[in-house]
Amino acid sequence: MTAPSTEPTAPSQALQVPGPEFIHPVVDGRPAEHPGGQYEASSQAGSRAPSIRPNAAISANTMVRYEDADFRQPPDLNYTLRTRKKSIAIFWTLIILDCVAMPIALYFGLWYGTSLSPNAVFSISTGALGSVSIIEYFLRFYRLWKKGSTCRVIGAHRFYLDWFHWNLSVAWIAVMVELIVGTIPKNPPIRLLAMPVSTMAFAFGLELLIMDVARLAGMKAPIRISSLPVGAPLRPGIYAIIEDVVAVDGSGGTEFRQRLNLRYQASQLFRQMLHRLTLFWAFGALIIASVTTAIIFTVNRNVAYVLGWTLPFAWAGIWAIITIKWVQMSLRDEYAKWDEVKWKA
C-alpha cells in the first residue's frame, strides 16, 4: 500500500467515488448485485476490485492507489490508534471534565455553597455544560464544509456533511430541549435534569438496532448514510459511525472512507465483525439507558443526579476497551484466514 497518490491511476487500482454498484458485495472481483444504469461496472477476471467510471467526480488528493490489486492480503485501512494515543487521551479528558465533572461540581457547589434559587443553580450549570463539545461540533462542521475538504463523504456534496454530524445535531437539540424544559420551573425537576446522557444512549442504541434489523430484512438505504447512497443495501449501523468519526475526528480523511468501503466489500469476516459490534453496542446502550433511568427515578435525588451523569460514560469506557481488544483479535483472525474468505459473500 502507498500513500494517496496525486497522479492519475488506473481504474482497476484506484478506489474512487462509488456508484450504486460499488456499494454492493463483491464476488470474484465483480459486484454480486448490480443495478446497471449509468454506473455500469466493467467485468474483470480474477479477484480485482470492480472498476469505476473514469470520469467519476473525485479530487485527486483523496484517491487511493492499491499496489496489491489481487488482494493477497486484506485491503489495508492505513490507520492506527497507536500514534494518536496522546490526542485521544486529551480529548476524552476534556469531554469528561466538561460533561461529567462540570455539571456535578456546579450542582453541589451552587446548591450547597450559595443562597441561589434552585432555578438559578440549574440555569448556571446547564448554561456552562458542553462548551468543549460545542467547540468540537463547529470544528467538525468546518472540516467537512470547507472548500477542498479532504475528509468529506464519498460522492456527496459539501452541504451533506456526514451521517454522524446530523445525528450529533439532533442529539444536541434533544438534550438542550430537555435541559431547558427542566430549568423553566421555579423548582426544577432534578431527576429530569439527570436524564440527558441516558436519553442519548437510548437513542444511539435504538438507531443501531433498527438499522441492523432493517439490513437483515434486506431493506435499502432510504436516505444517504454517509458514503452509502440512497437505494444501496444497508450496512451495520456502526459502519457509518466508524467511517465518520475516524475520517473527520480521527483525521483519517476521505482516504479512510475509501479504504473502509473496500475492506467491507472484500472481507466476509470484517462484515461479520461489524454486525456483531453493532449488536454489542446497541444492546449495551439500551440496557445502560434503561438501568440508569430506573436508578434515577428510584434513589435519592443527589445520588440520582450523580449516577445519571456518570454511569453511561463509565459503561461507554468499558465497552470501548472491550471493543478495541475484540477488533484486534478479529483482525488477526481475518489475516490468518484471508485466503479462505476473501470476496466471500
Results as ranks from 00 to 15, higher is better:
Asp339Ile: 00
Trp111Met: 07
Pro11His: 06
Ala57Cys: 10
Arg259Tyr: 06
Glu7Lys: 07
Val100Ser: 01
Gly29Val: 07
Ile23Phe: 04
Glu33Val: 05
Ala120Glu: 15
Ser133Lys: 14
Asn167His: 10
Gly155Ile: 00
Lys220Tyr: 14
Phe283Lys: 11
Gly113Ile: 07
Ile238Asn: 04
Arg276Asn: 15
Phe141His: 14
Pro75Arg: 12
Leu15Ala: 10
Ile104Lys: 13
Ile318Arg: 02
Asn261Val: 08
Arg259Ile: 10
Ser226Glu: 03
Val197Leu: 00
Ile23Trp: 04
Gly205Ala: 01
Tyr107Cys: 03
Thr278Ser: 07
Gly231Pro: 04
Val327Ala: 14
Ala171Cys: 12
Ser12Gln: 04
Glu255Gly: 11
Val246Tyr: 01
Asn261Asp: 05
Arg332Gln: 14
His275Cys: 02
Thr254Tyr: 05
Lys85Asn: 06
Asn78Gly: 04
Arg48Asp: 01
Asp68Ile: 10
Pro54Arg: 13
Pro8Lys: 09
Ile124Ala: 09
Gly182Glu: 01
Lys220Ile: 08
Phe283Asp: 02
Ile324Leu: 10
Tyr335Gly: 00
Ala60Ser: 11
Glu207Gln: 11
Val26Glu: 00
Ala69Lys: 08
Phe108Met: 06
Ala57Arg: 15
Glu33Tyr: 09
Asn261Leu: 13
Arg143Ile: 09
Ile321Lys: 11
Lys86Arg: 15
Phe141Thr: 05
Leu106Arg: 03
Asp244Gly: 03
Val248Ala: 08
Pro35His: 03
Val303Phe: 12
Ala3Ile: 00
Ile190Cys: 03
Ser42Thr: 01
Gly205Tyr: 12
Leu260Lys: 03
Ile173Ser: 14
Val213Trp: 13
Ser51Trp: 15
Trp343Lys: 05
Glu21Asp: 14
Phe280Leu: 05
Thr278Cys: 13
Thr126Pro: 08
Asn261His: 13
Leu307Met: 14
Phe283Thr: 01
